[in-house]
Design a protein around this nucleic acid. Structure first.
Lengths: 109, 109
DNA sequence: GACTAATATAAGTCGAAACTTATATTAATT
DNA sequence: AATTAATATAAGTTTCGACTTATATTAGTC
C-alpha cells in the first residue's frame, strides 16, 4: 500500500494527529474514533496495523497495552514526492518554508 | 473527494508530475499513461476531471486541445495537514526546510 | 456542412479496501 | 489456573472508485 493511500483514510489521519500530540494507547485511539466515526475496536485495530506496516507508526508494549507514536519514516516518500513537484513548479515554496520557520520559533529555538 | 484521496492514485500523481514540468495537453498525458499504465484515453480523461474538480489542476483551451497545468491551491489542505502534524512532532522540519532552500538556490534566488 | 481530431461524458462491470461479527492472543489479577 | 482487560486476527460482506466500451461534444479543415 502506497504512502498516499495510507494517508487517504480519514481515520488513519485522525489517529496520526492524536499520536503526534502524545503517545497513545490503542484504546485511547479507539475511544476517539468510536466517538467521532462510530467504528468498532476491530476496525481501528486494522487501521493501526496499516499504519505500522507502512512505517507511519511505531508501537511500544506496556503490559497489555500497545502505545502508538508517529514514525517519521513513513512520511519520507510523501515529502520526497511533494518536494520533487515543488522544485520544478517553484511557487508556494516560500510559504511553506516560512511556515516551517514559524513553527521552529513557536517552539523556541 | 479529499485531497489525499486525489493524490492516492498513481496515474493522477504521474499526471501532476508531467504538468509540473511544463503545461501538458490532455493528449500528451494520455500517451504517457497509455505507455506506462496501459490505460485508455477515457480513463485518463476521468482522472484529469478529478484533478480539475479537486483544485489540483487548471485547464486552458487551445483550439480543440485542453492544456493542463498544476494548480497550487489543491495542495493547500495537504500542506496544512502535514504542517499541523510537524508542528507538534517537530523533527524532520529542518530537513524539509533545508530541501526547500536547496531548491531555491538550484533555481537561482 | 461533412469529415477528422481532440477530448469529455454515460453506463455498466469489477476488484480492492474498509467495515462487521466472532474468535484468538497476550498480559495482568485474584 | 481461571477471569478480566486490552488488543489483534480471521472470515465474510459491502461499498466505492477505477476501469472499459460506446457515444457525445467541441473545434479546426476541406
Amino acid at each position: 500500500m502506497h504512502a498516499f493511500d495510507v494517508l487517504a483514510d480519514p481515520v488513519r489521519r485522525r489517529a496520526l494527529e492524536l499520536m503526534s500530540q502524545r503517545e497513545q494507547a490503542s484504546g485511547e485511539i479507539v475511544k476517539v474514533v468510536e466517538a467521532e466515526f462510530g467504528l468498532s475496536q476491530s476496525a481501528v485495530s486494522q487501521h493501526l496495523r496499516v499504519l505500522r506496516d507502512s512505517g507511519f507508526a511505531s508501537v511500544r508494549k506496556d503490559g497489555a497495552k500497545r502505545c502508538y507514536s508517529v514514525n517519521p519514516s513513513g512520511f519520507e516518500d510523501v515529502e520526497a514526492w511533494l518536494n520533487q513537484l515543488r522544485l520544478y513548479w517553484g511557487s508556494r515554496l516560500e510559504g511553506l518554508a516560512t511556515e516551517v520557520e514559524r513553527g521552529k520559533r513557536r517552539r523556541g529555538k
